[in-house]
Amino acid sequence: MTLQIEKSAPRTEKTTQQNRGKVRLREHLMGWLFVGPFGIVFLALLIAPLAYALYLSLFQKKLIGGTSFVFLDNYVKAFTDPSFLSGSWFVIRFSLVSIPLQIIIALAMALILDAVTNAFTRFSRLMIFLPYAIPTVIGAVMWGFLYSKNFGPLTDIFALFGGTAPNFLSSNLIFIGLVNIVTWQWAGYYMIILYAALQGIDPALYEAARMDGAGKWQVALRIKIPLIAPALILILVFSLIGTLQFFNEPQILRSLAAGAIGPDYTPNMYAYQQAFSLANFNYGSAISFALGGVVFIGVYAFLFFTRKRRSFL
């Protein structure tokens, strides 16, 4: 984070000490005036709910016996609760598989689109981006139908090759089914970001590399990818944040595959179940808060280890 907001020097030099004080005060005021409205929303809708969640999570409500202060018991319970742990483990595994997959696909597409420009690739770019315009919920509904043995196309497609269609809604394949939905939904969006970054590279660099005898692949690997690394990191961070709080897609598919997707399938679903189905807002808040903490630490650790914080922030 480089902070270059020095005011241009001449004005400051000319002002007297007293005037400078006034200018400074004015700058404080104007700054807060501009930031203030967002600040209010920030306090009211982010800080306050977080504080409230923290407060709620320190209590316990029972069907018999009512509400009592339990301090950190809910957190102790969460981190020993098999539902929360297996849900967390699931989203971690899911991140490890789906994020690299999405980014590799997005990167491959972006590199192709950057290298080949004609009517077909321009059309492709738009079509590949299209799923981003679909609400995740609707996307999940659509894929739920596509996975159906009876009226999805999979049966027909696999029959062409003489095979039986896999059931992506069964317990053993639901993981792949979800990876597919998420990839379909987001790869195009990531592709556009990477593509935009690639287009921003100065073509003179390619010329220079070619002079040095680098082939197309080498240009891609040695010049293009390193130069768009900040965009890659940004995508990684956002997909990580998004995946750790996975909710919409499994929640929708649950009505089609209740056996394969339990109400505690992801930590967020578990928090929802606790709060809204079982009326346990206290424990639900504790799970939300624990999840928020895990995400925060996870992302921060990621940024720290990639040591690219400067370019991101």
Partner: peptide, 16 residues
Amino acid sequence: GTQDQFTPEYISGVIN
């Protein structure tokens, strides 16, 4: 079978 019920899959199975 072991198909979840109250799903379009099950209904169409019953139909077919």
